[in-house]
Amino acid sequence: MRYLMMTKPSATNTAPNENLFEEMGKFIEEMTASGVLLATGGLEPGGMRVTARGGEVTVTDGPFTEAKEAVVGFALVEVRSEEEAIEVTRRFYQIIGDGDGVIQRVFTS
């Protein structure tokens, strides 16, 4: 089963240091090697807002949800169980520290 993990910016806005980048790189490498991590990436803050109404598609630069609600990173993982998804997330937060996120099951077929 696949899960999409999305992270929001951390409440205590500590600047990332070298150490964190290195640990994060190791973690991503390990998760990729074990076949768990399928895709991951960081997201441009904000992005564009798209609205479709009556066949009309509008793209605007705002208004956005509150900055702390915006998604800033994602990871698509393939795991055996919900618990495994949680366990992978736990390790992620052990590296980056405080923060909030969402895990959602991705339905494949």
Binding site: S34, V36, R80, S81, E82, E83, E84, I86, E87, V88
Partner: peptide, 15 residues
């Protein structure tokens, strides 16, 4: 919420 046994199982399978 998942109980501890299932967490142990998930950790075990990863490790």
């Amino acid at each position: 919420m998942a109980d501890v046994h299932r967490t142990v199982d998930a950790v075990w399978k990863l490790e």
